[in-house]
Amino acid sequence: MIYLRLFFEFFRTGLFAVGGGLATMPFLYHISDSTGWFTHAQLADMIAVSESTPGPMGVNMATYVGFTVAGVPGALAATLGLITPSVLVVLLIARFLTKFRTNPAVDAVFYGLRPASCGLIAAAGLSVAALALLDLSAPIAEAIQWKYVALAAVILVLTRWVKPTKKLHPIVFILLSAGAGIVFGL
């Protein structure tokens, strides 16, 4: 049953992804590798669409993957799977809310979890970079796609160091890059 499988895969993602935003990404890469439901390239495109549409990234990604795998019912199964652990955890801890927040054991667990989550996202980022900036089918000397490396460098400068553009929404840079990509393809 594909819907149950989707629900379960995303339930696990929701239970172990810590730190919001892109935290679900490493789990989606693993799902891609272990199920073959979608490719790494599709996943990179899903990240772009999820950044450009309203709503939390993690939920958007789950909906997109679910839809790609099994249409609207798939989108529903994946999204419900993703949010169920959050709902259960919150309902469980809501009673002793303040105690939980100041609990040294919880704090210690997250002391280890946070840098690990950051490392997982960085590793997933490397596979996006390999996909976007390298052509692994080409001979090694020609593997680097300089046009796209230059585009990434420009976006990096615009998002980190140029004051007027630094605060712009990611959608601006995504649209800009889409235009550049179309020009590169002419």
């Binding site: 950044e51 900036l133 490396v149 998002t159 800009l176 890059s177 990509g181």
Partner: peptide, 18 residues
């Protein structure tokens, strides 16, 4: 082509998040 360009941008967005 558009998504090939977008992927380069996604790398940077991920780097910034990291």
């Amino acid at each position: 082509d558009a998504f090939a360009g977008i992927r380069a941008c996604v790398c940077v967005l991920i780097l910034n998040a990291v």
